[in-house]
Simulated scan of single mutants.
Amino acid sequence: MRKAARTPGRAGRPPAGPFRIRSRGLRRTTRLAPWLDNWSAEKYVGTIFRDSQEAALVDVAVLRVLRIMHQVGADAPVAAYLEHHGWPEAVRAAREAHVRLAQNDGETPDVPPRSLHELALVNRAV
């Protein structure tokens, strides 16, 4: 398995390396929403994302979910999101971003991402 690209750590934090896989778990899109609501993922090329193409795919996925969230309300039940007419497109965009990020990491997109604990162990071994 190819190791993820590594970037220098900032402020005493471990380098991005395999930790960038966190962003690949786009099912957690709402965690990304606060920073992507204010800044494009392009700002994070070289730290979280390898290139502008990765960042653009993540931007599209997150913006689709944000659009739905603004229409149904952040506290809406899950069913409101799933029943929204734009949900299938949001899922498709998230899948495209996920596949690109996984493939760029040398991983299989259909294998669940490793836990943060597993990633921390891998990072210590490097």
Score class of each variant (00 low, 15 high):
Val122Tyr: 09
Ser115Gly: 07
Gly17Ala: 14
Glu54Trp: 00
Lys43Cys: 04
Asp51Cys: 02
Thr7Phe: 05
Leu57Asp: 08
Arg22Asp: 07
Pro34Val: 07
Ala55His: 08
Thr7Ile: 02
Thr29Gln: 04
Arg67Pro: 10
Arg22Phe: 04
Pro8Tyr: 09
Gly12Lys: 05
Pro15Asp: 11
Asn104Gly: 12
Gly46Lys: 00
Asn123Gly: 13
Leu36Gly: 08
Gly25Met: 07
Ala5Tyr: 01
Val126His: 13
Trp35Pro: 12
Val60His: 14
Arg31Gln: 13
Pro109Tyr: 00
Val62Tyr: 05
Pro34Asp: 12
Lys3Val: 08
Ala76Asn: 04
Val60Thr: 13
Glu107Pro: 01
Met1Arg: 06
Arg64Trp: 11
Arg50Met: 05
His117Arg: 13
Glu118Asp: 15
Glu118Thr: 10
Gly86Glu: 12
Val99Cys: 00
Asp105Phe: 11
Leu32Val: 04
Asn123Ala: 14
Arg20Gly: 05
Ala120Asn: 11
Glu54Tyr: 08
Ala79Glu: 12
Asn104Tyr: 10
Asp51Asn: 10
Ala74Met: 13
Met69Ser: 15
Arg2Trp: 00
Ala33Trp: 06
Leu32Asn: 00
Pro113Leu: 03
Ala94Ser: 12
His70Asn: 15
Asn123Tyr: 06
Asn123Asp: 13
Ala125Phe: 06
Val91Ile: 07
Glu96Gln: 12
Trp35Gly: 13
Arg27Met: 13
Asp105Val: 03
Ile48Met: 03
Pro113Trp: 02
Asn38Pro: 10
Ala90Arg: 01
Trp87His: 02
Val60Asn: 07
Glu54Ser: 10
Gln103Thr: 11
Arg20Cys: 08
Ala76Phe: 06
Trp35Gln: 15
Gln103Met: 13
Val60Gly: 08
Asp51Gln: 09
Ile68Glu: 00
Asp75Phe: 13
Arg22His: 07
Arg20Val: 02
Leu66Trp: 09
Ile68Met: 02
His117Phe: 13
Val122Asp: 14
Gln53Pro: 08
Arg92Trp: 10
Arg13Ile: 10
Pro109Phe: 00
Trp87Arg: 04
Val72Met: 08
Asn104Met: 09
Pro113Met: 10
Val111Tyr: 06
Ala55Lys: 00
Leu121Pro: 01
Ala41His: 04
Ser115Phe: 03
Ala74His: 13
Gln71Arg: 15
Ser115Val: 03
Ala61Phe: 01
Ile21Asn: 09
Val62His: 01
Arg27Ala: 13
Ala102Cys: 14
Leu63Asn: 14
His84Phe: 03
Val111Cys: 03
Trp39Asn: 14
Gly12Val: 01
Gly46Ile: 01
Ile48Asn: 01
Val99Met: 03
Arg28Thr: 09
Pro18Asn: 15
Asp37Leu: 15
Pro14Ala: 03
His84Ser: 09
Val91Thr: 04
Asp51Lys: 01
Val99Arg: 02
Glu118Asn: 11
Arg10Gln: 14
Ala41Gly: 08
Gly12Glu: 08
Arg124Asp: 11
Gln103Tyr: 14
Leu32Met: 11
Arg24Leu: 07
His98Gly: 03
Lys3Pro: 05
Ala56Cys: 04
Val58Arg: 00
Met1Lys: 05
Thr30Asp: 10
Glu89Lys: 06
Leu26Glu: 03
Leu119Ile: 07
Lys3Ala: 13
Ala120His: 06
Gly86Asp: 14
Pro77Ile: 08
Leu82Gly: 10
Leu26Ile: 09
